[in-house]
Design a protein around this nucleic acid. Sequence first.
DNA 1: ACTTTTATGCAATAATGTTGCATGAATAAA
DNA 2: TTTATTCATGCAACATTATTGCATAAAAGT
Lengths: 140, 140
Amino acid sequence: MNHKDPIAILRSHNLRVTDCRIAVLQHFMKTDHALSQGDLEENYSEFDRVTLYRTLQNFLEKGILHRIPDDSGFASYGLCFETCTPDGHHHDHLHFKCSDCGHIQCLEQTHVPKIKLPKQFQVDHIDLIIEGTCSDCQHA
Amino acid sequence: MNHKDPIAILRSHNLRVTDCRIAVLQHFMKTDHALSQGDLEENYSEFDRVTLYRTLQNFLEKGILHRIPDDSGFASYGLCFETCTPDGHHHDHLHFKCSDCGHIQCLEQTHVPKIKLPKQFQVDHIDLIIEGTCSDCQHA
DNA sequence: ACTTTTATGCAATAATGTTGCATGAATAAA
DNA sequence: TTTATTCATGCAACATTATTGCATAAAAGT
Ligand SMILES: [Mn+2]
Ligand SMILES: [Mn+2]
Ligand SMILES: [Zn+2]
Ligand SMILES: [Zn+2]
């Protein structure tokens, strides 16, 4: 997804092309960490809070964004990869959260281990969050 | 922690013994899945919601409970194990979330794999959430 | 250009999280 | 056992975030 044009992405996900959607999508594409609704509100005061909210909801439904689990109570979002469709999200990828700056990033490349669970559990997918210090924060 | 008496647990964590704290702690001990503030409010209308809120905060600080990451935006809590102290939480354990009933449970016994990350990342701890269907929900 | 469908902004409401403060309860001291 | 001190509680108030309805504006289809 990251290599494509925002307009093409919106079209291919059956979403109308609007200023707000283009802006939000571009912002995600040029940012290397997960974004929250608050982040968007700060950067795009020209759009209503509710519009940004609904943009995030739409992107979730269409499989453009995924929600990233977090224990802060603050929802944040990252771009989905090609495997996601409106029918559902299909991720098994890592997230790294820096406990210093709070930034969360998706790590696509790293191998996600298989987990053996007692057989009464039916496993669908795995979310793995690694907490630590990012390179930017290590010498600060 | 699970085998002990609530009053003893409170005392050993330097918390005064009060009705609310006993009730909340007992509720966690007899429940096999994570609880949210809302769960407590439903079950204990005799206590103010602020008191329940502060009880959760106190338990977090003292290392009796830990917050469980989730992408629902709903904070939930589980009992900590012996490794947690007021100085910090020390978990590397799995959580299982049933996408049907929504219940989250801590899995203490299962092995958490080591993850290899690019060296610019400094790893502190790992949170692993497995989503799927629990045994209760598999034949319903 | 016209029609249909959908997105937007604004207002309003709901839900949740958080703090201050007076009172009451729990522990420590006497 | 009484008294003093420390802390928990309830209530009110406020802050923040999430969510919905509806009239208008904009996008896509014809
Ligand atoms: Mn991700
Ligand atoms: Mn847990
Ligand atoms: Zn950082
Ligand atoms: Zn279930």
